[in-house]
Design a protein around this nucleic acid. Sequence first.
DNA 1: TGTTAGCACTCTTATCCTTAAAGTGCTAAC
DNA 2: GTTAGCACTTTAAGGATAAGAGTGCTAACA
Lengths: 357, 357
Amino acid sequence: MSDIELSDRKKQILYQAVEDYIENASPITSGAMVQKSETALSSATLRNELNALEQMGYLKQLHTSGGRVPTTKGYRFFVNTIKDNCRADLQGLMKIKSVFEQRTINLSELIKVVAEKISEVTDYPTVVSLGGIDKLEILSIKIIPLMTNQALMLIQTPRGLLNNTLELEQSVDEQSCIDAGRVLSSKFVGMSIGQMVDSIETKHQEILAELNEYASFFEYVLQSLVNITKRYAQNGVYSKGATKLLKNPEYQNVEQAKDILKLLEDKDELKALIDDDSEDDIEFTIGEELPDERLSDCTIAKAHCKINGENIASVGIIGPKRMDYAKISGALKFIVDEFNKTDLLANADDKKGDIYD
Amino acid sequence: MSDIELSDRKKQILYQAVEDYIENASPITSGAMVQKSETALSSATLRNELNALEQMGYLKQLHTSGGRVPTTKGYRFFVNTIKDNCRADLQGLMKIKSVFEQRTINLSELIKVVAEKISEVTDYPTVVSLGGIDKLEILSIKIIPLMTNQALMLIQTPRGLLNNTLELEQSVDEQSCIDAGRVLSSKFVGMSIGQMVDSIETKHQEILAELNEYASFFEYVLQSLVNITKRYAQNGVYSKGATKLLKNPEYQNVEQAKDILKLLEDKDELKALIDDDSEDDIEFTIGEELPDERLSDCTIAKAHCKINGENIASVGIIGPKRMDYAKISGALKFIVDEFNKTDLLANADDKKGDIYD
DNA sequence: TGTTAGCACTCTTATCCTTAAAGTGCTAAC
DNA sequence: GTTAGCACTTTAAGGATAAGAGTGCTAACA
């Protein structure tokens, strides 16, 4: 990203131009910029500069007499040099603080609240995804008898319990449950959830053979183990505010909006898009920088929320390239900080809290 | 609904007219109907009849030379006399059968599958809501110690367990948990979930006073009880295929679609709209018949899925008034029947299966 | 050398007008 | 009771014109 080619004046003009465009959604013109007295220059000089910026690829004209619009390169410059992080009224986010302090909430609920509030404050569709369930280590597996024909299966992980109720064909006594739990533990403890699922799926027969004695029972329990993890993975994605997309003039045409609205309904796709192992706390991926062609007119803002340095959740905000970067970056910074600060969850090391639903 | 005023010929013409309009989305004209040889009559006679039907309020003209469009009364007639229930290719729904037979699935997952499949087959947004959690009777409350500082709270109901993990401030021994469960049971068993929440919220201090010994512990546990039920109620609504709405020409204008798409995001509102105690298995509510003014151009189809005569879930399909009633009614009938037939869940009386998540 | 006023040029958008097409209602004949 | 025929209405589409917006370029200026 060598914006070195840009003189200070060009930088200032470009920054101002993009900012204006984001605000008004109408192409940048020399006249309008002079009128807002954003510069001491004349419109003619400005035109020269804008022309130069176009040559350099920061702006482009839709047609000869229609003003200019930022390119991805232009937005990229803007995002990288953004000054004013927080034009947003983040009051609404303050309420999240109290949610962090509640003891009866778990991570699944927390991500819902976070998604709702961020979407509300930023006015864009927001997705929150709990990350890395696959990578969680299995600490133990227990089966607890409940009532007749029912037992509860628990998978303990460093970040809380996964649970699922089992319906049994015949009643099982307490000792059998304890035994079954032991057998499963001896098989899977130490593996990650992902490894367990893999091994169940690939070495299915093999495992069943080893468990000979209880084979029919375990056939079903193994299936449950796989199902649990799928369910938790899917429940770990929450999206809110999809229709806010339609407020933006770029999506007045239904065809434009369709693809993205559809994406926002597909949790698996969202997860793939939002989750990653990036080091950055906050990053914007703009237009063609995105992996999916259908998103070439969008920007996705991502934030990685960490507790004790470990990625817990990813927050994604989806909007047009002309999204309000300043506001969004402010909101995301707030959330990231909040996660970092959270003492309550931070000493989760001791507590191994009920983080999952 | 006195359609007695209609001669047989008028009925036939009206039925045909509405069917055509549903299929083509373009106003009904005498010319087109003759051309499709849907009648042996001439276009002039047809015009007389259509005119009469308009006088009677079944059709209306948008403008003098623009053909006619059904009114709500017209659609109502059509729905009530619908002949051909199933023009849909319901093959896709057959897959649901196998889901019903799976033993590792619970109701929460089932409603997701149902919503997905119905939306897929009908091509309309579909909402499924698990009904009546509030009304479930509390059979017992148990607290099971898990690991240090963690316990599992279980509420047993006639339709499965509700569960929530508790994070405790200090470790609790097994006996205390059993005691706590007993105290809560003695207080709430026999009440419905709804009554319990009410009584916790209104008689909060009173209850705490009675539980004097463990007051601080129970303060938190009571809070959890309320939270659990809220969570289960919210998780009991699932909507799928919202964007399919945009396929319909009536929603090409984003403004038209906005309200409904927003509604489809709001689980509480959806629940209110879909849940009811209606006796009918399947019913259509058309346009102005709907309670919400914003929905005056929509129809909502509802189906009530029962197991052993008890309302288990409601399915709602939302679309324009010009929705494909025949296809939808076919799909909904299939699902209702499937629920009725399901032996596996039907003997839930014995099994008290893990129906909730 | 950088800046600016002025103007010609381009392209879009709005408006008006005209025309064609679609569909009805009515009338008169069958 | 049915139908052919025609006048009437209204929309939709196309074309021409005019207005407006914004640029690029040139020439003058500090």
